[in-house]
Design a protein around this nucleic acid. Structure first.
Lengths: 244, 244
DNA sequence: GCTTTTTGTAACAACAAGTGACAGGGGATC
DNA sequence: GATCCCCTGTCACTTGTTGTTACAAAAAGC
């Protein structure tokens, strides 16, 4: 029943990346890696990341800059890896908005304890995503309300969606205009406790299309990308203001 | 202008207490002290404490026990002070629910950075208190009065709720728009000592829905998130001012 | 135009949630 | 301190949701 949190390791040293990745995998975490800021952004856009382990010292955009930028657009927790004994680095790291830091070389058990503590404090990626989601998302006259888990058609009529349908639609709408593989959709919409085959997504898409009135032969909303997955085509408007 | 955060120092050594108190006062924090668990409780009852700095090693009820007890009744953040170099202490501290720890002897600037970081993460005591118990909470015409533990329907008629029902509803209402797992709800509504299976929440939700007149097949107030828990959908208005 | 691969979806099976019924426990009352 | 009554957790059965299978249709390859 427990889901495995997905952790992203950002470090420019290949050995450290691989070492950490293996270590985390052995302790029941899912791990992805990135060697720089650009790769990090790519992974963040494509997966539901629960926590980032970020090396402070990196060529190009360094850890501090990345951390500060991250904070401006998301609340994904960050554990910063710092050189040993540099108090000032640690302080700056915490002030930049890192949730915790760890001095290298570190005790692996301590890393695990910190990951656990940070995740307990901050909750899962899916929880955070629904928190960060704007109050309203609109496309082609339809309205999606993440807080209420409701979908309104262009006539403002409530369209009942099941849990899985709603989560899939939310994943699509918050990533419109991008091809999403079945695997990604499974991860984003159903969480990683789901051991479903990826054809389950096809069924779900089929059911969603029906409720959206999207003709499967010639879909205008959720388009099929043969061999690739699906793409949510309409332009989405995000509204943060509340409706009075 | 915002009031300065109020920090409570709990340590059995008078010199450390006074040193920390002076140090924090010099850096624009309000500081109170306590030398043991009993004093700590007295201060907590009388003041809106934003953060507790707790020494791990104390005679009598030690820091870990205090920390665990604290966590059962409040969400006040805790920074634990530990003996130097004891990794296991640190790990246990984090697992007991401390928000951070600091090894003695510590760099005072680092303590400040951690205090700042923890406060940023957890919000002020007032925010927390208002989250826990505003004077009135309203949704869809219903009124919940935490002080009186009463629920009024849209006609202002008193709807009798049992203790468990009220606590569950309060947990929902103060966290509307967020998916809450059965485990979380059990924790929030029944307390940590509850040894109940999480299906007990289902029963409670069923009873609450009936009293709220929320149709279980198509609920508008407490919605089911299959595999995830429940979510309180309506927008909630918080009223702090007295009704004049 | 025939074959192969991929997608759409109906039908079904497996599973999670809703709830009536019941029992143990705690508090009130006498 | 015995009794009653209400609250709350558990069980068992029902109902609705979701993943899987199977097959037909469409698209791509040759």
């Amino acid at each position: 029943m427990e889901k495995q949190p997905h952790i992203l390791i950002v470090d420019d040293h290949a050995e450290i990346r691989e070492l950490l990745k293996r270590f985390l995998s052995e302790h029941d975490y899912r791990a992805s890696t990135a060697s720089n800021g650009a790769e990090m952004k790519k992974v963040l856009a494509d997966a539901a990341i629960d926590l980032i382990i970020l090396d402070l010292m990196m060529p190009g955009e360094d850890g501090l800059t990345l951390c500060r930028n991250l904070r401006t657009e998301s609340r994904i927790p960050v554990i910063m890896l710092t050189a040993m004994g540099e108090d000032t680095d640690r302080i700056i790291g915490l002030e930049m908005g890192a949730d915790d830091y760890l001095a290298k070389p570190f005790n692996p058990r301590e890393l695990l304890a910190r990951i656990k503590a940070v995740l307990r404090r901050t909750g899962s990626a899916r929880e955070r995503e629904s928190l960060e989601a704007p109050e309203q998302l609109q496309f082609l006259g339809w309205t999606l309300l993440p807080g209420a888990r409701e979908l309104l058609d262009p006539d403002q009529t409530l369209v009942p969606l099941s849990t899985a349908e709603f989560d899939l639609l939310l994943a699509f709408v918050t990533r419109s205009g991008r091809v999403l593989s079945r695997e990604q959709l499974l991860d984003l919409a159903r969480g990683r406790d789901s051991h479903a085959f990826d054809r389950a997504i096809d069924t779900l898409v089929s059911r969603l299309r029906r409720k959206l009135g999207d003709p499967p032969r010639n879909p205008q909303i959720i388009k099929t990308v043969r061999g690739g997955g699906y793409i949510f085509a309409p332009r989405v408007e995000h509204h943060h203001a509340s409706v009075s």
